[in-house]
C-alpha cells in the first residue's frame, strides 16, 4: 500500500506530535482517516466528530481538489497524492 502524505495545519500539530506532514498507508481518503484515527486519535477527533463525519468547518483536499469534487471519502489515492487538511473560511 502506498504511503499518502497528509499536510497538517498549524493549529492541529499538537495532535500530530508537532509534525507538519505525516505519511500513512491508505488506498482511499477514508483509509487515510482510519489510519489517522489509529495513529493520531486526537488529530482524527479534530477532523471528524464521533460519528465519523468530517466536521462541518473542516475541508479535505486531495492535491488541489476538494474531496466533494472527487468521490468524497471514497476518493482513490495513489503514489504522490497529498491530502491537505484546511479549516473552512468562516468568521463572525
Amino acid at each position: 500500500m502506498d504511503a499518502i502524505t497528509v499536510e497538517v495545519p498549524g493549529p492541529l500539530r499538537a495532535a500530530s506530535g508537532g509534525a507538519a506532514r505525516v505519511a500513512v498507508p491508505a488506498r482511499t481518503l477514508r483509509g487515510v482517516l482510519e489510519e489517522l484515527e489509529r495513529r493520531y486519535p486526537a488529530l482524527h477527533r479534530s477532523i471528524c466528530d464521533e460519528t465519523g463525519k468530517v466536521r462541518r468547518h473542516v475541508n479535505l483536499f486531495v492535491n488541489q481538489q476538494h474531496m466533494r469534487d472527487r468521490e468524497g471519502l471514497d476518493t482513490v489515492l495513489g503514489p504522490g497524492d497529498v491530502v491537505i487538511i484546511l479549516p473552512a473560511v468562516s468568521g463572525g
Binding site: 493549529p11 477527533r45 479534530s46 466536521r55 468547518h57 473542516v58 479549516p87 473552512a88 468562516s90
Partner: peptide, 10 residues
C-alpha cells in the same frame, strides 16, 4: 478548567 467550543475542530 474551561470548555472551548472550536467551530472548526470540535
Amino acid at each position: 478548567y474551561a470548555s472551548a467550543c472550536n467551530a472548526f475542530f470540535g
